[in-house]
């Protein structure tokens, strides 16, 4: 079953000439974890925003093709309705705090109040989201008093409480310290285990390789490839797209350690193959 269908998507921001998305098509199945990679300016963020309807509804500009979520065309819907199906987490944890709420608990309620949920249900969902993200103990704190990692988890909690089927994370750890990043990656992993469809843009390729069912490689507004992490990272032209494969893959590429033409992308798999390689020689 296809959760998201993108067909011949083209997009230009207002007052610019360049097609930032240039004839993009792909499909995502329910429950999949999709990693999006590509160098800065490739159009990754714009693509994410197109799936939530922010492109074109928020940014305007010139738009062609279709994005369907559960068969509904996002450009013809509105962002609040789509937000019940697709949630999105941005880079900067600071800008995602609404700023209008004095406690972490109330902050999570923001979206729920907007959609007019009743109080009982609201509280249940907030408790659940805070527990899932491991920040329940901060519930009475001011959101701005949290650390970067905690604040980003709060942003995710605010999205989870809306109970979307799809969550998009656009470089969620790029502004966090290593500890904060780990906290967020762990949270993302928990979400995946719950069967939520996840799309994550990330520069830490080890994480992309570890989590993703499929990886979308973008360059200059186009989809270069959309395949399993092994296939994507086994390509020999990654440099050209500003992508560096995970460390384990890089090492195995250097020694040409591969299995049916594919290099390993995770530590476990790399070890396995190195052992086998040693036995062989």
């Amino acid at each position: 079953m296809d959760k998201i269908v993108v067909e011949n998507l083209k997009y230009k921001y207002p007052l610019t000439d360049k097609l930032v998305l240039n004839d993009i098509s792909f499909k995502i199945e329910k429950g999949q974890f999709i990693g999006i990679i590509g160098q800065n300016g490739a159009g990754k963020s714009t693509l994410c925003q197109a799936i939530t309807g922010l492109v074109p509804l928020f940014f305007k500009g010139a738009y062609g093709g279709r994005v369907l979520v559960d068969g509904i065309e996002v450009a013809k819907s509105n962002i609040s309705d789509i937000s019940l199906k697709v949630g999105m987490v941005f880079q900067n944890p600071f800008t995602q705090v609404t700023g209008s709420k004095l406690t972490v608990y109330e902050e999570v309620a923001f979206g729920l109040e907007n959609i007019g949920l009743n109080r009982e249900e609201m509280k249940n969902r907030i408790d659940e989201a805070l527990n899932l993200l491991g920040i329940y103990r901060f519930k009475d704190r001011n959101p701005f008093d949290l650390s970067g990692g905690q604040m980003q988890r709060l942003a995710i909690a605010g999205i989870i409480a809306m109970q979307p089927d799809v969550i998009i994370l656009d470089e969620p750890t790029s502004q966090l310290d290593p500890q904060g990043s780990e906290e967020v990656f762990k949270a993302v992993w928990d979400l995946k285990k719950r069967g939520i469809t996840i799309i994550m843009v990330e520069h830490k390729m080890e994480k992309i390789a570890e989590y993703s069912d499929k990886v979308l490689l973008m360059h200059d507004g186009k989809v270069i490839d959309f395949d399993t992490p092994e296939k994507i990272f086994s390509r020999d032209d990654l440099m050209q797209y500003g992508v560096i494969e995970p460390a384990y893959t890089r090492i195995c590429k250097a020694f040409d350690i591969k299995d049916s033409g594919l290099y390993p992308v995770t530590l476990d798999r790399a070890c396995e193959m190195v052992v086998k390689y040693n036995e062989h020689n």
């Binding site: 922010l54 962002i79 995602q96 609404t98």
Partner: peptide
């Protein structure tokens, strides 16, 4: 980014707020 984050949390929803 804040405006986008608000939109994603149904800031422009037509529903009656609770």
């Amino acid at each position: 980014e804040r405006a986008m984050a608000l939109e994603i949390r149904a800031f422009s929803s037509k529903n009656k707020k609770t």
